[in-house]
């Protein structure tokens, strides 16, 4: 299987022509292929939304769950079987809005999973309402006077919490994005990749052209281990410039390593009740 599409399949999608999700899917397949991963080793979890349909279009294990809940099943599956390569993929509404608490808690846990957020700054599947990352003033049918809220800054949020790996990619830069995803998947610990992408149907502000005018690659000398530098990058005004690349990185023990129960390998598929049960029960003898 000599190319990403042969290994990970090619499916008909429910996405609008021109959707950024096509490029994210292409980058994801390329990253997994270049990381020498095979379909049965990978578990993709997702929530609900257009981006959350991505696992449907990629040949691997899949758990397509509830809106906002792509991360908890990813963590549950990783704890059950740390040998799985677990990737949660969903949109900005799903991960930054409905499931925000899970992202915060996941950063604190630091499981060795990858979280890909397809951030098109608008709700697509529900047809065009403002999302947590829509700019303040972003006009929609539901917010005719413009979104009244300050936009959520996922990079600043994750860096401030010293998330183990924080990167930003752009769907318009497929090769760069693929390299980022590959690095994120290889990174030991929670890797968050915020993926900016246009929504050709519902977001007429943050278009391909708009992104192209603002996105720049972090210079090769950039040091992602500096928290202060990362916070400076994270706080850049997106209306002005948008940095792409690995913004922050910090090696830390993973969540799974904290469980001695997992030292002997996955607890999944190991559902034997051993002789230990006798000594457990005997503690209740009187």
């Amino acid at each position: 299987m000599s190319d990403p599409e042969t290994r990970f399949g090619k499916y008909e999608t429910a996405w609008c022509p021109g959707c950024g999700d096509f490029m994210v899917l292409k980058a994801l397949k390329k990253a997994l292929f270049e990381a020498d991963l095979h379909p049965h080793q990978i578990l993709l979890t997702s929530g609900i939304g257009q981006a959350a349909k991505m696992p449907q279009y990629l040949h691997c294990n899949m758990f397509n769950g509830l809106h906002g809940r792509s991360i908890p099943p990813a963590i549950g599956a990783k704890l059950a079987n740390p040998e799985l390569i677990v990737i949660a993929v969903s949109g900005d509404g799903c991960i930054y809005g409905e499931g925000g608490n899970h992202l915060m808690a996941a950063i604190r846990r630091n499981p060795d999973i990858t979280v890909l957020v397809c951030n098109n700054m608008v709700y697509g599947l529900t047809k065009g309402q403002a999302s947590p990352t829509s700019f303040q003033g972003f006009k929609t049918k539901a917010q005719p006077r413009g979104a009244p809220w300050q936009a959520f800054n996922p990079i600043a949020f994750a860096v401030s919490m010293e998330c183990s790996f924080v990167a930003r990619g752009y769907a318009g830069e497929v090769d760069h994005l693929a390299a980022l995803i590959k690095e994120a998947v290889s990174h030991r610990g929670l890797a968050l990749v915020d993926i900016l992408q246009p929504c050709v149907t519902f977001n007429h502000v943050n278009t391909y052209r708009w992104f192209k005018e603002r996105c720049y690659l972090l210079p090769s000398g950039y040091d992602p281990s500096s928290w202060e530098e990362a916070m400076n990058i994270a706080r850049e005004d997106m209306e002005e410039r948008i940095a792409l690349g690995v913004i922050f990185k910090k090696e830390m023990p993973t969540f799974e390593e904290r469980f001695p129960q997992l030292a002997q390998g996955p607890v999944a598929g190991r559902a034997r009740v051993g002789p230990e049960i006798a000594s457990v029960l005997s503690e209740f003898e009187i």
């Binding site: 769950g65 549950g76 704890l79 059950a80 996955p266 999944a268």
Partner: peptide, 16 residues
Amino acid sequence: ISAVNMAVGASFAGAP
């Protein structure tokens, strides 16, 4: 919400 979704994920992966 997380507790039940984690448990469903873990069970899917093979942990009762």
